[in-house]
Design a protein around this nucleic acid. Structure first.
Lengths: 267, 267
DNA sequence: CTTGAGCTTACCGTTGCGTCAACCTTTAGG
DNA sequence: CCTAAAGGTTGACGCAACGGTAAGCTCAAG
């Protein structure tokens, strides 16, 4: 019989760990003096301890180890658990590889954009949303921006009206004749059309959900929005994504003076 | 300005996370109503949040992220931290690879030793120890075992006398003419020689420390000890270790009837 | 008998939030 | 105007696997 100290030096583990394993029922001492509470271990516990240490090294949690040891699991179950664990570790491994690639991409981005901080691209899931929107062709960015102002005035200030957005429906990058959809997210499920001019009116429609949307935030006027697109393009290239669906711009903070606004660009 | 709920849906994070980041000072809301305690975020915080999310994906801890954002760290420092992180992840990755190999080895071991449970081999560091020992040549395992009994009788029962051990000094695997050292670990630094017979006596010596020792536990009589050696051999082969130094056997539980005892075998 | 080493219980800290619980505020609708 | 529902707030506990520390009890040697 060994005391905790002896056992811990023999097994090369801390006494604290032995007490912990006793507490959680993973390795209970062979005998506990009821008067003093002293723990005493015997030689067979040493073998038990070794098994625990080995399984721990394999990456199993203490809970899994306890189940493997307490229930007399068959070798088949044992193999199943180990195979499962192996797959789990392989997944984690792939994740680490991803992270390394991302770090390298970020380092490269820092080197590229020396003074400027790199834009942060994050992927999100966008649920389906209701929106009041109008879809037409614009001559320039400025007219599109003006349409935002018109729309904002046409709708009263209500909490049920959310953020304003722009969706690009044109295929190529163009500077004129842009096929855009401009609108505002609403929380309601029904809404009468809102006239904006003699030709145009906002109508309710469902924005489809997007399972994977790369987003970044651009701060500044119209002239810097394209840098956001550029960043997202680079990011997609670096991380192996492809374009699928229409880019969206959501205006988080409206322009104070027909200039300088922050927006999220989503693709 | 957005409330926590709005901000959380926009950023695709939980409200709890926002509160947490506020608590730890990682992302404080732009404004907190002093009367109600309500938090309000603005659009620039959204950019801040995105940066946090990106750095989190890179594997940085929240503490590291806070330091990166609060202190206006230079791009050089930033790069340094990222490089450090990358190395760290690479280390972890190697560890995972090791684990996968170990799991595979274990699976193989299970398949090999169908009914029997595989022996658990763990690596330990052994510190230098004092020991009373005698070194000589034995004809058989039985005579060596008898020597253990003689030694045990020659020494009084004291707590300063520790476990009994055997060190194999012969080079090859032999069944006779074994060059063994038999002794007992002691906690003292000085001890007079103890005569065992007219020819032999126990003398104090230092057992050198071993930085890497593969150990396993064998339960049973003399006839199964060699299986332990076999297991350790297989294990070394599977995990890429090489023999360096003399094998040691430490008797954790003495034989009750000149048979059936548990021992740790160390190499 | 004393003294020091060794043992005990018990509680806090770590990391990054998820999950209640109890209790206020705001907003929309009747 | 009132009320209910939705949304906000501050705690507090829990998770995994122990490390570290403090106050107090036991044991073995001199």
């Amino acid at each position: 019989m060994f005391t905790v100290g002896e056992f811990s030096t023999l097994a090369q583990v801390s006494k604290r760990l032995l007490r912990h394993y006793d507490e959680i029922g993973l390795l209970k001492p062979a005998h506990v003096d009821p008067a003093t509470g002293y723990r005493y271990y015997n030689a067979t516990q040493m073998a038990h301890m070794n098994r625990i240490l080995v399984l721990k090294e394999l990456g199993l949690t203490l809970d899994q180890i306890r189940r493997m040891l307490s229930d007399c699991v068959s070798t088949d179950e044992m193999q199943g658990m180990l195979l499962l664990k192996k797959i789990e570790i392989e997944q984690a491994l792939l994740g680490e590889l991803q992270r390394i690639r991302k770090i390298e991409a970020r380092l490269q981005a820092i080197r590229d954009t020396e003074s400027d901080k790199p834009l942060d691209v994050v992927i999100k899931q966008i649920p389906a949303q209701s929106a009041l929107s109008v879809r037409t062709v614009f001559e320039s960015f400025e007219t599109a921006l003006a349409m935002h102002g018109i729309m904002r005035k046409a709708l009263p200030e209500r909490t049920s009206y959310g953020l304003c957005f722009t969706i690009c429906h044109h295929e190529d990058v163009v500077e004129t004749n842009m096929h855009l959809e401009i609108g505002r997210i609403v929380k309601l499920n029904s809404h009468a059309p809102v006239p904006l001019s003699d030709r145009l009116q906002l109508t309710l429609r469902q924005l489809p959900a997007v399972e994977t949307m790369a987003t970044t935030i651009v701060t500044g006027g119209l002239e810097v929005i394209h840098t956001g697109y550029g960043q997202i393009g680079l990011w997609m290239q670096a991380n192996g994504y492809r374009l699928r669906g229409n880019p969206r711009e959501i205006i988080l903070q409206a322009a104070k003076s027909t200039h300088s606004h922050d927006l999220i660009t989503e693709i």
